[in-house]
Amino acid sequence: MRILIVHNILWAHYKSVVFQALQRLVDQRPDVTMLVLQIARNERSRAGLEVEVGTTAPTYAYDYDLLFDRYLEDVTLAERMQALLQKARKFRPDVIHLTGYYDPAQLLLLGWAKVQGIPVVMQNESTAVDHKRGSLKEYFKRFVFSQCAGFFCFGSQSAQYLIQLGVKPAKILLQKNAVDNATLRSVYEKSVSQRSDQQQALSLRQHNFIFVGRLIEFKNLPTLITAFAQAITQSAMAHQWGLVLLGDGVEKDSLQTQINALNLTDRVTLLSGRPWFRVPEILALSDVLVLPSRSEPWGLVVNEAMACSLPAIVSERCGCVPDLVHDGQNGFVFNPDQPTQLADQLKQVMDGLVDLKRMKNAAEQSVVPYSPEAVAQEMFDGFSKITT
């Protein structure tokens, strides 16, 4: 079996760790070969998260070709089409895995594979609620998906969306998403021993809620700040708690303005984004993750937090919720349009009305089945299923 995987950007470490785990499975089988085509190095929107010069980042070993050593936005459609077709013809795959339906170059490869009789597995991140849907676009998706032999989905909500579009359940081969749990946990454990000193150095509170991600509109951060402001006026233990926003983005200035207007400058801390493998250094200074997004196909930061034993308070519109967030056990689920609901959950945590230690243990256990090795095994099994 010859497996060809098309992926957009080499930077995506959470995919690289899965590809490495998949490569290890492939290497155990002399009759199986795998190649990953990485179209570009990174996206401009994530350029600030690239590794600083002189920093030692985790590396992942798997067979790949980097087609263009530049930003994805700088690679033309014609270049993508030519490179993908050329590489596919040379590799002669038995199965192809595509990143998504939205790239015309990958749709061209899908058409070529159909003519050649090569089955295609399509990745799907979308859910029915993460964006507004137009009927014409949905019709187009139905047609594209009807040409595919199988699907790798980001969770059960993603799978249900495909079923709504006419995909047979038997074609859904994977319903998980993973990050590098082991590396994240290792960095966290090294950092947590310095928690008090680092909190003091950054002027943080003894306990903290934390958001990690880009400071952009759909992350719904004004609602989080408003809810936090409301919660600290109601909690008897509010003096112990702060809020950390870790990331960069176009809303940074407006969020700072909101923080100033609510007199929260000594309670809400904005920290610049950092490479993913250094995020646990700040998670170690925190107690609970909050992800208030109005739209999120999955929300990998929840995996990252739970790998570091942090419970998560997560918007019901994040794709990971049905699979990973168990309300009242390893976190809470809330309506992102209701700051009062979120404020009440923050207050419960502040006032010790939940067993935070038990929630931390539950969070750590919840993410165990979402390991790179588990995802890779299901991918391998999926490839095998549609090629036999």
Rank of each mutant, 00 (worst) to 15 (best):
P322L: 02
P311Y: 02
P275C: 00
L356S: 06
R274G: 02
E125P: 05
L174H: 03
Y60N: 03
Q38S: 06
Q160R: 13
L346F: 07
V301N: 00
S156A: 07
T226I: 15
R92A: 15
V121M: 04
A363E: 00
A374R: 07
G328F: 01
Q86A: 09
L10E: 07
V6S: 03
L66T: 11
I225G: 01
D327H: 15
R205E: 08
Y60W: 04
H7E: 08
D180I: 00
A170R: 05
V354S: 11
Y62F: 06
P30S: 04
D63E: 15
D381A: 13
C308Y: 02
L324S: 10
G247R: 04
A343E: 01
Y370N: 05
Q258M: 09
H207L: 10
T265I: 14
V333S: 01
V367R: 00
D74T: 04
N42S: 13
K176D: 11
N303R: 03
P93D: 09
K385H: 06
V250D: 14
T59W: 08
S126R: 10
I259A: 00
L37R: 03
F277E: 07
L10A: 10
A61T: 12
F68M: 01
K171H: 12
D180T: 08
P104V: 03
C318N: 08
Y14S: 05
E316Y: 11
L25C: 14
C318V: 09
I259G: 00
R24S: 12
K190E: 14
V290L: 04
S16W: 07
A113H: 04
L25S: 12
G299H: 03
D381V: 10
F140C: 12
G117D: 03
L271K: 10
L270E: 05
S235R: 12
S135D: 08
I282M: 05
A374H: 15
L37S: 02
D327T: 07
V314S: 00
